[in-house]
């Protein structure tokens, strides 16, 4: 989902761990105990989680950009206030998640620098452009809908600080999805042009949203360990299917069609079966060749550089006050 690029195996690290402690650790996981920052943990667990949580944080922060693009052009004050609040929430989510990642020993600055240098990944979905106002509706409805599908099981993830951060995030995501769907309902009930705009946005976002759940189960390298450690509780394909099944009736209500002519409901299982996903596109976007990869990183770097004087001034002021107190 927001951490799709966890592609390397950590097998080598595991060999050198103290086997007895690792067994004890696994027993705690199996007993559904939460692992806390000062507890012993295998270094691969620490590494995997640091990467997963920080990628998730980067996704929240970069995720502000496609929507921020429409704040000044929202069609009414009500829509503008809601969108602004939503983008502020995304920032808050990024900050909860960075704090959770830091409990594993990484520093905030180190994590942020990894993102700015392009070494750390964020979700592929934020590398697509928001061309019309309807995109803001679709992002809330589908992108946040997919995120909720993925994040609810993370509330029971074995690592305490991550699970607690996800509980806060999930409480707030529900507003995001509802505001998006409300935009879609308004457009779907509007003029022919508005309906066409809604359909066009759905057409462009549908497949990238399905890709958010990550590679198919038979191609995912890191799922086994993550499942064993109860970081991941459902497979990519299971979550994707759940999402599709929940979304199809919502699209039907809007009178919009899912851009997948081959999609059909399996009468035996009730599941909506979708056509093959273009995984080459997914790989290209992750590799940095999506429509907006360069723009997104450039925008983050610009914001970071232009905020440097604020960080420096705050640090200088804190230092001056400390010196004065020491002198008094």
């Amino acid at each position: 989902m927001y951490t799709q690029a966890l592609n390397t195996s950590e097998a080598d690290d595991r060999n050198i761990e103290d086997a007895a402690r690792a067994a004890q650790f696994q027993a705690r996981i199996d007993a559904e105990e939460r692992i806390e920052p000062n507890d012993w943990m295998p270094s691969a667990y620490r590494k995997t989680l640091t990467r997963q949580i920080s990628q998730h944080a980067h996704s929240e922060i970069v995720g502000m950009l496609p929507e921020g693009n429409w704040i000044t052009r929202a069609p009414s004050l009500r829509r503008k206030a809601a969108l602004l609040a939503k983008v502020q929430d995304e920032c808050g989510h990024g900050l909860y998640l960075y704090a959770a990642a830091e409990t594993l020993g990484a520093s905030r600055e180190e994590l942020v620098d990894l993102m700015l240098s392009g070494k750390a990944k964020y979700s592929s979905i934020f590398n697509y452009p928001t061309l019309t106002w309807a995109d803001i509706g679709v992002i809330g409805w589908l992108v946040d809908g997919a995120a909720i599908m993925n994040q609810i099981p993370l509330c029971r993830c074995s690592y305490g600080p991550y699970a607690r951060a996800m509980i806060r995030v999930c409480k707030e995501e529900s507003f995001h999805q509802r505001q998006g769907y409300e935009i879609m309902v308004t457009l779907a009930r509007g003029s022919d042009e508005q309906k066409a705009m809604a359909q066009d946005a759905l057409n462009r976002w549908w497949w990238p949203v399905l890709m958010m759940f990550g590679p198919p189960d038979n191609a995912s390298q890191h799922s086994d360990t993550s499942t064993k450690w109860k970081i991941k509780r459902f497979s990519n394909d299971e979550l994707r299917q759940k999402f599709v099944d929940a979304t199809v009736p919502q699209a039907q209500y809007l009178g919009l069609s899912i851009p997948d002519p081959g999609m059909k409901q399996n009468p035996a299982t009730g599941h909506w079966e979708y056509s093959d996903i273009d995984w080459d596109e997914f790989k290209q976007v992750l590799a940095g060749n999506g429509p907006c990869n360069r723009d997104r990183l450039a925008a983050r770097r610009k914001a970071h550089d232009e905020g440097a004087w604020v960080r420096e001034a705050a640090a200088a002021y804190a230092e001056k006050r400390k010196r004065r107190r020491a002198a008094a």
Partner: peptide, 11 residues
């Protein structure tokens, strides 16, 4: 409820 980074107590 969580943690954050800031230069001083007011911030």
């Amino acid at each position: 409820v969580g943690s954050l980074h800031a230069a001083d107590a007011t911030l």
